Amino acid sequence: MVLKPQKRISNKALTVWRISGVIKSVIGWSITATALFILPIFDVPFWVSIVLIVLGVIFPCLHIFIFPSLKWRSWRYEVREEEIELEEGIFIKTRTLVPMIRVQHVDTNQGPILRKFKLASVVVHTAATAHEIPALEEDEAEELRFFISRLARVAEEDV
């Protein structure tokens, strides 16, 4: 029987992702307002303006209220001696196994919004790609970074 990852990211991620949704919405509204101002100059049909306005209402609702909750509920991770397992995805579930032997280095990232909420993301680098565990409590992220680094060294020594 294959066990699914059990650990969850911080519930503060909801607030961070909602703030990001607000920022994206403001940018989208600015672009939409500019487009609505310019469209009459080019004799664009009126229905195009209606579509832009409807999208300007729907997308913020999705990115501020719906997607953050769905994204948070679906995010899971587990760090084991041999691998790191990540599970994410709202509509398409992705489960990723990163063998410890492939881990080259581990970083923590913290932008201004994450810093405000005392969160950080852990990024696990392999030769081919990078895998992120988003929005962990700062202390948990640091502990996880050291733990993965230590396990990766042990896995490398065993080879």
Rank of each mutant, 00 (worst) to 15 (best):
1 M>P: 04
1 M>T: 08
3 L>P: 08
4 K>R: 10
4 K>V: 01
6 Q>A: 09
9 I>S: 01
9 I>R: 06
14 L>I: 06
14 L>D: 07
17 W>E: 00
17 W>I: 03
19 I>D: 08
21 G>K: 07
23 I>Y: 01
30 S>V: 14
36 L>F: 09
39 L>W: 12
41 I>A: 11
43 D>S: 14
44 V>R: 04
49 S>G: 06
50 I>K: 05
55 L>W: 03
59 F>R: 10
65 F>V: 10
65 F>W: 11
67 F>Q: 14
67 F>A: 15
69 S>Q: 14
70 L>H: 10
70 L>I: 09
72 W>S: 06
74 S>Q: 10
77 Y>A: 02
83 E>D: 11
86 L>Q: 04
88 E>V: 00
90 I>R: 03
92 I>W: 06
93 K>M: 05
93 K>P: 02
94 T>D: 02
96 T>I: 10
100 M>A: 03
102 R>G: 09
105 H>W: 00
107 D>W: 01
108 T>I: 08
110 Q>E: 10
112 P>T: 08
113 I>T: 00
115 R>E: 07
115 R>N: 14
117 F>D: 11
119 L>S: 06
122 V>K: 03
127 A>V: 04
132 E>C: 14
133 I>E: 07
134 P>I: 01
138 E>K: 08
141 A>T: 07
142 E>W: 13
143 E>V: 15
154 V>C: 09
155 A>H: 00
156 E>C: 10
156 E>M: 13
156 E>S: 08
156 E>A: 08
157 E>H: 06
